[in-house]
Amino acid sequence: MSDTLVPAGGQTGNPKHGRSRRGAKGAKAPKAASLWSDAWYDLRRRPLFIGASVLIALLVVMAVLPSLFTSVNPFDAKNCNLGDARLGMSEAHWFGTDNLGCDIYARTIYGARNSIVVGLATTVVTAIVGGLLGLFAGFRGGLLDTLLSRLTEIFFAIPSILGALLILAVFRTGNVWTVMLALAVLTWPMTYRIMRAAVITAKSQDYVLAARALGASAPRIMFRHILPNAIASVIVVATINLGYFIAAEAGLSFLGVGLRSPDISWGLMISDARERFLEAPWALLFPALFLSLTVLAFIMLGDAVRDALDPKLR
């Protein structure tokens, strides 16, 4: 039998493996691996995630602090001159001017705020409402699950854009919050179904059965054990949906039932420019370009997060 002494904790202290956990003074214990730490480690090494994050960060700064990017305030009527209508790109007007002689660059910068606010607000509302309902329905089952499942089937039968058109046409108050509510009312069932399926899978796992055996209450099991393990799929879908909501707001504004003047959004700018597209194509192309890049950035971010959180794709 070997006379080698094994220190407490079962580690040999071999220099190839570093110091033992209870060895040298002040040595830090290694952090336990988890889904989130592994996902963050993976995301930091993905060029797709880094590129999308940089672009999204730039767009958020643009939405919060537009004055950093332009000194022209498009809400001030003094900055619009009909005599300068449909001018091309120049040193004074980088993106040209629109039908009213307003600077398109300044309007594009300021238009980011409403578009991104609608996308973020709708994403948060659908994630909270659909996530909580899916958590309770998946955990409880029974009559509650049956009723909510039938209700979501009704919503799935309604095309979201068509339903939002009807809601906004009835209320006739096109602003950020009514557009957000119209989209959220019709799109929360997707988050509900994803969370419900994840909860049903998670509640049969050994760690949940062990928590039940130890006498943990139902709220503790739901929010302490099941929710952290089921929320990953909701985060992925919410990230991808954010881009969809931004595009949906632009579509509703383009159709005349979303945001309305004097508000500024990329959809409104595209709608205003479509009639004179052949005379001044830049008035449509630049807001459309910013809209496309924003939607693409959030879709790329969602794809990267999905790949990082799904162990099968690693």
Rank of each mutant, 00 (worst) to 15 (best):
D76E: 00
A33Y: 11
N73W: 09
M89Y: 00
G142M: 05
L162A: 14
R107E: 08
F69G: 06
G131E: 01
G119V: 05
L162H: 04
K28Q: 15
L143N: 09
A57W: 03
L59S: 05
D42P: 00
V61H: 05
V60Q: 09
S71G: 13
T126L: 05
S37C: 04
R86D: 09
S160I: 15
P159F: 14
C80Y: 05
T146N: 14
A127Q: 08
T126Y: 01
I167S: 04
L82Y: 10
G131P: 00
P159V: 15
A137E: 08
V129A: 14
I161R: 09
S67F: 14
I128H: 01
L144Y: 07
P159K: 03
D145W: 06
I161N: 10
K25W: 12
L100Q: 08
W40R: 08
A85P: 10
G134Y: 05
L148N: 11
S67W: 14
L135D: 02
T70L: 12
A92T: 14
P66Y: 07
T146L: 14
K78H: 11
F136D: 05
I56Y: 06
E153K: 06
V64W: 04
L35K: 14
S90E: 13
F155K: 11
G130P: 06
V124R: 13
T70N: 09
L55W: 14
W94Y: 12
F69Q: 01
L132A: 12
A106K: 07
V64G: 02
P159C: 12
A24V: 14
V125D: 00
L165E: 04
K78I: 14
A24R: 15
C80S: 00
I104E: 04
G141R: 02
F136L: 08
A39G: 04
L166E: 02
C102W: 07
P66C: 08
L59Y: 06
L151T: 12
E91Y: 13
M62H: 08
R107T: 04
S53G: 05
R150F: 08
H93W: 04
L168T: 04
G51D: 02
R45W: 03
